[in-house]
């Protein structure tokens, strides 16, 4: 029940987070984050059973929707990774995400995802491929799917924590950074936990989706600060 609730909450928040940014698009504000939030919205929607079954049925019932979900999630993390590294002014995080290492990891993960998807026996829609969990290739497919998000989140944890500890920064930005830092930490912890044989049960859903909720809340706070900040700009003449 809690797992299902948090999925719907995450979906609602993603929709809200993307919707509030629509007015700014005409002025070219926040297009990347808007794109990331739209992709995230679709990805979250595809994690919810009735939506997944409907969409995948439309796509032929071969779980292509799950593959799309994975690829969209990689795109979300790539876009968020680039923007967050720039927002936190972290050169190291930026290089780790878009530098040779980050690009190589992304390429390998995408290749592995495609390979394991093709080699798995996946006839009949199944949300999160739960019906096929006994196939080794499906497990590898899922593991590859967690690797890239985990890598990007790990790159961003330290810059986000540093932004929280920055006493000179605006309070709302520090609070937003705290949400983001929590979110990235949860992603990292989740990925690490899945590498162990621990049975996460409901946490298998709750952890990643609470990370999504925290990320979207953090982004909404920064959007709010931007919207308010545009209205009352700081003292223009600094010489008096």
């Amino acid at each position: 029940m809690t797992a299902l609730t948090i999925q719907w909450v995450a979906l609602g928040l993603c929709v809200v987070g993307a919707a509030v940014r629509i007015p700014g698009l005409r002025k070219r504000h926040g297009r990347t984050i808007f794109a990331a939030l739209v992709l995230l919205t679709v990805a979250v929607a595809l994690s919810i059973e009735p939506i997944y079954l409907a969409v995948d049925g439309f796509l032929g019932g071969a779980n292509i929707a799950n593959l799309l979900l994975r690829l969209m999630l990689y795109a979300v993390f790539l876009l968020l990774g680039i923007r967050m590294a720039a927002a936190f002014d972290s050169n190291l995080a930026r290089r780790l995400v878009v530098g040779p290492v980050g690009v190589t990891i992304l390429a390998l993960v995408v290749a592995a995802t495609l390979y394991f998807f093709v080699t798995s026996e996946l006839s009949g829609s199944s949300t999160a491929l739960r019906d096929f969990g006994d196939q080794d290739t499906v497990q590898h497919y899922a593991a590859a799917g967690r690797l890239y998000p985990g890598y990007v989140a790990a790159c961003l944890v330290i810059p986000a924590v540093a932004a929280v500890l920055d006493h000179e920064a605006r309070t709302i930005h520090r609070v937003a950074s705290a949400f983001l830092a929590c979110s990235f930490s949860i992603v990292v912890v989740f990925v690490l936990l899945r590498l162990t044989p621990v049975n996460l049960m409901a946490w298998d859903i709750v952890l990643p989706f609470s990370a999504i909720v925290l990320t979207v809340v953090g982004l909404c706070l920064i959007w709010l600060s931007h919207t308010l900040g545009r209205r009352r700009t700081r003292q223009a003449n600094k010489l008096v």
Binding site: T32, I33, M84, A87, D166, A169, H173, I222, T227, R234
Partner: peptide, 24 residues
């Protein structure tokens, strides 16, 4: 004193802009 204040203010402005332009 004024120079230090302006440097501080511009640094803060830069941080705000980085947040707003990338995530806002």
């Amino acid at each position: 004193v004024l120079g230090k204040q302006i440097r501080r203010a511009e640094l803060d402005d830069g941080k705000d802009r980085a947040m707003w332009e990338n995530l806002g």
